Simulated assay, not measured.
Amino acid sequence: MTNGVVRMEVVVGMAVSWATRTLLDRYVDDPSTVTCRWESTVVDVVLRHGSRSDVEALLPVFVDDPAARANLVPIFARYGDIGVAERLLDVGVEAGRLRDDVPTEVLRAVGYLGCESAERILWEHVEGASSYSYHTSMDACLGLLHLSCRGLRTEIAEALERHAGSHLFPEFLPVLAGKTGDPSWLGRLVEWGETRASTDCNGGLILGIALHGDAGRAEFARLLWNPHWEAYGGGTGSDRWAYAGARALGLGMPRLYADLIAALNSDTDPERQRHCIATFTALLRHWENREWLGLRMAPEPDESGDALCDLLFEWSSPHEDDSLIGLARRVLDGDDDGLVAELYHLEALLRRNARHEMELRAITSR
């Protein structure tokens, strides 16, 4: 009997989710059909509706082949604990370095799970060691966000000083600025982003400003609608980190929509207005997708899809389209570059989302 089948026999008796059982069945019985798309979809279901039992069921599969099962790591972070973090370290780290066959997401997971003993290990992966890579540095920084970093304050400050004002740098190092205890970094991050940083490398600056909390709220709101920051940038990832920053500050879509309207009313420049529409569309896209951000300080949104449909896409009268789409049509005046079409698509997705919310309520209320 293979190890995979043995695992299945153990797992069957556990209170694991249907999605996890489906993953395990296919891993064992039909591994050639485990495509990245299919696996990512099922993992997303586990992330939304899973439990600690799913972690225990899936962890042995990951340990057997970490490189092939990188998609499972967020499940371990979301539903694991310190014990799980320590097991991930045992599997993934050797002589203080992440093993070559282990996905970098493990670094973020052990930080997310509050494993303070991993602080030094994560820090050693932030800057340009011989094995430096973008994803290694990003996941190490995002993991450190969840740790105290009391023993790293000086080193973080020194690293920020070395890179401040650079065009390109370890992109997510700025998210750790708050760990230095120096409030002056808020203004310096803003200046860095507005004067020197490449928009290909500003995701960490955007999130880092938001993570200053109330002190950074006004600057974050300003950068969202400032074309220089290109917060709508999907290719660079700026839109994802702008969305994460909004979540961290508790800025729901109703507030962001009000801010959009205020920004459009305060500046009639067509290019700036187009930027504002593009940025809000990007934020709405992330809201609809509801990807797990892996940041404890950026919780799930409170508003429902049904409420957003009413707010954004209903007309106040049958005589004029004063919805988000009508607003975009007037602002863009035919030069929409696909934005209006995307808004129609998002409207359809949100209406479907609202229907699914109601179906779930109906099922769970029986």
Rank of each mutant, 00 (worst) to 15 (best):
L211C: 05
A177G: 03
W229G: 01
I363W: 12
D322L: 06
G326I: 03
A77W: 07
G4R: 13
F280Y: 10
E194Q: 13
F313W: 06
G151N: 04
S137T: 06
G83K: 03
E119T: 15
G114N: 12
D214W: 00
E158M: 13
I325M: 09
L346M: 05
R37K: 13
R361I: 03
Y132P: 00
G181S: 06
I75F: 09
G213A: 02
T195W: 07
E171K: 02
V175E: 08
D101K: 05
D182E: 09
F76Y: 03
D101N: 13
E94N: 09
S316I: 06
R26Q: 12
A328G: 05
M138A: 11
E342W: 00
H135L: 15
A140R: 09
Y132E: 03
D101R: 07
F280Q: 01
D336A: 04
H345Q: 15
L295Y: 12
G237W: 01
P170W: 05
T195C: 07
C309R: 01
A242I: 02
T236R: 10
T22V: 10
L176R: 03
I261M: 10
L312P: 09
G213Q: 10
A218Q: 13
E314Q: 13
V340Q: 00
V126C: 07
H228E: 14
G294T: 03
R153D: 03
R330T: 11
E119M: 02
K179N: 05
S166I: 06
E94R: 13
E357G: 01
E342V: 09
L350W: 11
E161D: 12
L23D: 09
A298Y: 09
P254W: 05
